[in-house]
Design a protein around this nucleic acid. Structure first.
Lengths: 341, 341
DNA sequence: CTGTTAGCGCATTCAG
DNA sequence: CTGAATGCGCTAACAG
């Protein structure tokens, strides 16, 4: 069987139905001013040929848009972001739009290339979890009339719609809960401060310490681990200290999972009882958190809703006739859930 | 600030650079037969205007294609499938192609609509984790010269490239390991047999029982649970039996996680010691599996590689001049990893 | 109710 | 080395 690469065009449908291309076009756009029986003939031809209207050809015509939304995410494989993507996809699908998904791997250059590519494909808008602190490529998109919505992280110097979490408040509340639970030596594992959420969550952590009159011990702070493995190493270092922390604040799920894995391994080795290990506070809930071998609390939130909200911000702007009004900065609430275990 | 929705065209670049559109086009396509200084002028104009070649306009011209791959997945939020999507994205990006991602929610109608939409957008090919047992819409795609690659599941009656796991063999080996570990009453939690993987994994399970001379006890088999919550309920039912299983074979991560959660909860309630609960065999590894409160083994595999392989199958066919040869059916190996815990 | 003309942005073909 | 003409698939705008 040879793969006949033939996608029928409107002309072929017209020929087969014995009408002009315009009649086909009209029929496919709702059938206004086309006799019912002619419509039937057209639709029959469409079905027989398996015709699909070429949206790309359609979109180059004035007034028409591509129905595409460019989504750039730092790491699709992270359940947090994939759930976010699901939220975006669902909301976009409600308006018949599709998403063009790209993974940036937390790499600014890749984000640049991706945005550029998306613009070439004439996306109507961009939803970005920025890997780059550099606003130029996104500003360029806006200048072309392609709105940008930032999700999870903001970019300094870019006036764009955004939806982020209550990072500072969440980290603050979580840390206060630890302190009020009796902890005075609290470790910190999180992203580098170069990243928006890393900075804000760290700030909330520090603010809580100050508020309770605890001094910040730099040797307890690891602002850097990105992967579970790196988090394990950082945890190992904390546990090796002569005076280890009695609790660890983990600024995201990668770090919390790394900490738990390391603690679990060490408990399994049997050197010290489980109670000798630090308790965990995790910014991000995650599956099986309740199996932690040490007490764990989470600062929970809803990535799917984050995605939906980002999409709605964008769609609102796309549907707005004029400039769509001032930028909107949304902060989604988080929920402290103590001692899942 | 008004959102000037102006995307510059090749004409405007030409005007600004003082050349014809063709010279711009040539410059952007590699610059063959364009004087270096002219190229510079063109590129300067491109940069100043923030011009991006309109790929949609480009793709309607004969010979050119969209550079788009349609990916339809049953559930993006499932870490297994999001990692799969990452693999597809990476491999597609290597050839400059992008993915159009759609979620089917295990819904055949949605899959139909999605495929139809993808064809309208002139995707070069389709990568599908089929939610539907019905081959017609996918066959239609092939007939138009848009190749289809099935991933994880095959569709009966559809002659398409596919990459799936060694479901039967994996389930068989896992079950044999349980039996040889002394278990004679083994529970089963998995997808409905209407789903390809559900059917195959169940078959491997049954085959192992037969091989070892154990009879299949229907009351121990739950072929249906799709979500963690449903899996918990099914587990609860198994544990309530007068003669409960001493091991449970879980045909996917949703079911394994549900089982573990339920067992963990019951152990926490303190009615029976942990050793009184069934051990787990999970088809699919998952994060924190090693924290299971009961011994657990997994049939591991690599969803990212599954994605990469699916993409490569598709790209091979796209790059092939002729019909690309016979369909290829790949079965990726799985690895039994016993007693992570 | 239906068909013709024209043009969206781009690049192949053919003249210079 | 550069430009003009032409047509990709589609649909407003304008006849009829």
């Amino acid at each position: 069987m040879t793969a006949r690469s033939h996608r029928p065009t409107i002309k072929e449908v017209a020929l087969r139905a014995g009408v002009s291309p315009m009649t086909v076009s009209r029929t496919l756009s709702g059938g206004l001013n086309v006799k019912p029986d002619v419509q039937e003939r057209v639709l029959a031809a469409v079905a027989e040929l398996g015709y699909h209207r070429n949206e790309n050809a359609r979109s180059i015509r004035p007034g028409h848009s591509s129905g595409l939304i460019g989504v750039a995410i730092t790491n699709i494989a992270n359940p947090y972001y994939s759930t976010f993507a699901l939220g975006v996809e669902e909301e976009a699908a409600l308006t018949g739009r599709r998403i063009l998904l790209g993974n940036t791997s937390e790499d600014a250059a890749r984000e640049n290339a991706l945005v550029s590519d998306f613009l070439g494909r004439r996306v109507e808008g961009l939803i970005v979890v920025p890997a780059s602190a550099e606003p130029d490529h996104l500003a360029a998109s806006q200048k072309q009339g392609v709105p940008v919505v930032l999700a999870s992280r903001r970019v300094e110097g870019l006036d764009a719609d955004s939806v982020v979490l209550a990072d500072d408040e969440g980290a603050h509340r979580g840390t206060i809960a630890l302190i009020d639970g009796g902890h005075t030596r609290i470790g910190y594992l999180g992203n580098t401060l170069a990243i928006f959420t890393g900075r804000r969550r760290h700030a909330g952590f520090v603010r809580a310490l100050e508020e309770r009159g605890l001094r910040l011990d730099a040797s307890l702070v690891a602002a850097g681990p990105q992967t579970v493995e790196q988090a394990r190493e950082a945890t190992r270092a904390l546990l090796r200290m002569k005076n280890p922390p009695t609790a660890i604040f983990c600024a995201n799920n990668r770090n919390a999972i790394g900490a738990i894995k390391e603690i679990s391994t060490q408990i399994g080795a049997g050197l010290k009882p489980a109670t000798a290990y630090p308790e965990i506070m995790s910014f991000d809930d995650f599956e099986l958190a309740e199996l932690s071998p040490v007490p764990i609390s989470v600062i929970d939130h809803d990535p799917r809703e984050l995605g939906r909200t980002a999409a709605r911000l964008l769609l609102d702007r796309l549907d707005a006739d004029g400039d769509g009004g001032p930028m909107r900065e949304i902060e989604l609430p988080v929920e402290l859930r103590t001692h899942l275990r």
